[in-house]
């Protein structure tokens, strides 16, 4: 059996993609922190990754199936404390989420790097 790169990488490229897109949405929240009536959004990344994971597992059974696509919906945030101007962004909480998301991105990147160096080691036969 040959080395299949997409099988070796598993869910991590999708996780990376999802974290970039989530950081875009969170950056939008942070940019609109003072816009009246702005509704903060976020991605339900657990369910999105679960969908990708299950379709990746289904794909292992049937040969020649195409790569699953990343599908998610953006949801609106429920604020801890509603503000008078109708804006649902809470600066501190949003900044914490943004920082956490950046750390998750680094984690996914590290996983991918480990997979790649593992494959490179296998190819070199060391």
């Amino acid at each position: 059996m040959g080395i299949s790169f997409d099988k070796a990488f598993g869910v991590h490229p999708y996780a990376l993609q999802l974290r970039v897109e989530r950081s875009q949405i969170l950056a939008g929240n942070l940019a609109n922190v003072d816009t009246p009536g702005y509704l903060a959004r976020d991605v339900d990344y657990q369910s999105a990754l679960r969908d990708v994971q299950s379709s990746l597992e289904g794909r292992a059974v049937q040969a020649g199936a195409s790569m699953p696509s990343l599908d998610y919906e953006t949801l609106y945030r429920v604020p801890l404390q509603p503000s008078e101007d109708g804006n649902t962004t809470e600066l501190g909480a949003e900044q914490a989420r943004f920082a956490g998301n950046a750390m998750d991105f680094q984690t996914s990147l590290t996983f991918l790097n480990m997979k790649i160096s593992g494959l490179a080691q296998a190819i070199r036969g060391e």
Binding site: E21, Q24, A27, A31, N32
Partner: peptide, 17 residues
Amino acid sequence: FQTVYQRVEDAGGLGAA
């Protein structure tokens, strides 16, 4: 201030804000 949503096709529905 007002929010401007960018193109709709990316980011599942509403685009970058």
